[in-house]
């Protein structure tokens, strides 16, 4: 029976090649648009993750804090917030010296004014502005801690940028989903009307809506599959062109690629099933 439905879908595809190709190209255009935003999101996400990796919190220690107290503080930080690295006053001075470079300026500073500190790499769940602000507030309560710095404004902007990118991707996804539903509904209506005699005869013979609709659904799925593969091909070409001009522009990973095709197919299945239920009510009495 399944083979029969596939044969029927193929028969319909051959009989209405023009319509099928128009549908596939329309869907490919919509999916390419969606894919471009996915590509932007993926690369933006990668860039933000890379920047996010460098998010750290610097906990300045008071001069009174002994080695045991620092170790105890590190254990608490490891338990509550993430990993930490101890930077002694001497190390901090060395780093500062390396950054400044000019020995005359360093001589002018005189004795080392820099405090010892802990560089804290927060857990991924805590790498956002609200959580980091709360962590800083809590860490400042420890007696060994003199102050905490984490570049709050910078983190806040980074988070806002990431949220905006996500919202844009969702909005584009919804628009493309609506476009797919619109294209499929109209194409299926045309396909059913083009085969009105067949649909009416099958209805009179007692065919269920499922039986009549299945070849149309399969045809729509094949068109979407072709369209999504074409869209991926175009996206790959775009990514290759961009990669020659900009460093670090990557293509969608396999999971995203499969999700892209899978989502398009799932949407097509749902949209075409719903559309056909409506269309068959008007055609097959």
């Amino acid at each position: 029976m399944h083979l029969f439905f596939w044969r029927e879908a193929w028969r319909s595809f051959r009989a209405h090649r023009g319509l099928a190709l128009t549908t596939a190209f329309s869907l490919a255009a919509a999916l390419t648009l969606c894919g471009i935003f996915l590509l932007i999101c993926w690369n933006a996400g990668q860039a933000l993750a890379w920047i996010g990796d460098r998010r750290e919190m610097i906990v300045y220690l008071s001069d009174d804090a002994g080695e045991a107290q620092v170790k105890s503080l590190q254990a608490k930080i490891a338990e509550l917030y993430g990993s930490s690295t101890f930077v002694s006053r001497a190390q901090a001075w060395e780093e500062f010296s390396a950054q400044v470079g000019d020995p005359e300026i360093l001589k002018a500073v005189g004795t080392n004014p820099l405090p010892a500190s802990l560089r804290v790499r927060l857990r991924p769940a805590l790498q956002n502005f609200t959580a980091m602000e709360e962590c800083a507030r809590q860490l400042e309560q420890f007696p060994e801690v003199e102050g905490v710095r984490f570049g709050g404004e910078w983190v806040r902007r980074l988070d806002a940028l990431y949220q905006d990118a996500r919202r844009a991707a969702i909005a584009v996804g919804v628009i493309v989903a609506l476009a797919i539903v619109f294209v499929l509904h109209n194409t299926l209506r045309l396909a059913v009307l083009a085969r009105r005699t067949q649909v009416e005869t099958m209805t009179k013979l007692g065919a269920s809506d499922h039986f009549i609709a299945m070849p149309f659904v399969i045809e729509a799925l094949l068109e979407t599959l072709a369209a999504s593969l074409l869209a991926l091909l175009l996206l790959f070409g775009l990514q290759q062109a961009l990669a020659q001009r900009m460093d670090g522009v990557g293509f969608l990973p396999p999971v995203w690629t499969l999700s892209f095709v899978g989502s398009a197919l799932a949407l097509t299945w749902a949209a075409s099933s719903l559309a056909l239920t409506r269309i068959l009510r008007t055609v097959g009495a």
């Binding site: 209805t203 009179k204 013979l205 007692g206 065919a207 269920s208 809506d209 009510r281």
Partner: peptide
């Protein structure tokens, strides 16, 4: 219903 109508016609 449409499903029952189809079933009837198949008889």
């Amino acid at each position: 219903s449409r499903a029952h109508r189809a079933l009837l016609r198949r008889t």
